[in-house]
Design a protein around this nucleic acid. Structure first.
Lengths: 180, 180
DNA sequence: CATCGCCTTCCTACCGTTCGTTAGGAATAA
DNA sequence: TTATTCCTAACGAACGGTAGGAAGGCGATG
């Protein structure tokens, strides 16, 4: 039970850093501490392993979106999630660059994610109805740009981005009281 | 002279779509219409080819940023550039996912690009001085998010993003008259 | 309690294929 | 003549994956 989990973790980390094509089963097995063929006791192919990983990563993120009520927290939590959770790192990078055999599927899944985000905006009362469409676009835009910045920028810059973007977003779209 | 150019073009297109590790010299040579070893008459290694490509792509984009005065056009032109110019597509995707041996270099180059963009904001009189820092962050944020959307979204969505983002940006930051 | 078979997990050894790359030669052009 | 550009042939290394067996845990059966 434990080894399967460890393989997933190390694989997610490596896939996130080097991509699907850039990561070999030898690398994964070495990190895990077993020999390459032993991987096949747990996953029937490289594709399969990647597929399982992708499925779980999207499911986890979907869950995170569904259960987090605070719109700001949904963005700010990305910062430490990216540092700490290999699965989240995998999600972000593999969305930006996925192997051919899963590209369509992953794009579709990412679309679902963004739609969930937009749905949260539409269900938020403090945004005037006639601005909800714009707010939804801007929110997902900010979401993506933070994801990008996490990939190849510094954490400091990500924080600055989040701070500025959120200030602009709330000032532009939220009526009445302010939101930290 | 012409073959060198054709190799670059096909290579840029393939690298953009499948990444460095996901693209083989066999694929490139096949598209070009020559045999694999013939590539070595023009570029001394796969790394070298990728490096030349990256260098040129960043240089071209730097040039584009320097010579385009209109802030809106700088963003909107990304849409058709991504469709038509393999070099630009290469720039965007390889910035998001570059091979290890060039990762640091490419990140540094991308940073220079973003700084150039911020520089344009700082030199723009119609933005109040005390808002320039925020405007610069937001502008690069929009730039990145459009690049991302180009990679895995539809063109329609990219257009919508640009439209919405630009409306918010100008309304929030530009004083006096409006900008299309 | 012992032991049998079974399943899981790991191993060594190796498969065929593809990878980037090189050697060496023919053709072309300056 | 010399340099460039293409080719065929082939290299060693690394790839994803398979065969087949050893070791260990597990429950069922005697």
């Amino acid at each position: 039970m434990k080894m399967k989990e460890k393989i997933k973790q190390e694989a997610a980390s490596l896939f996130a850093e080097h991509g699907y094509a850039g990561t070999s089963l030898a690398q994964i097995s070495e990190r895990v501490g077993i020999k390459k063929p032993s991987l096949y006791a747990h996953y029937k192919s490289k594709d399969h392993l990647f597929e399982v990983l992708a499925e779980e990563a999207f499911e986890a993120e979907q869950q995170r979106i569904a259960t987090t009520e605070d719109l700001y927290e949904l963005l700010s939590s990305m910062l430490h999630l990216y540092e700490q959770d290999a699965r989240f790192r995998f999600l972000v990078t593999s969305s930006f660059f996925s192997p051919d055999f899963l590209k369509k599927e992953i794009m579709a899944q990412y679309d679902v994610l963004l739609q969930s985000l937009e749905g949260k905006i539409y269900g938020f009362e403090r945004i005037p109805d006639d601005q909800k469409e714009d707010a939804a676009v801007m929110y997902t835009l900010i979401f993506d740009s933070i994801a990008v910045e996490l990939c190849y920028g510094t954490k400091k810059r990500s924080e600055k981005r989040l701070d500025t973007a959120w200030r602009v977003f709330t000032h532009y779209f939220l009526k009445e009281q302010e939101k930290k």
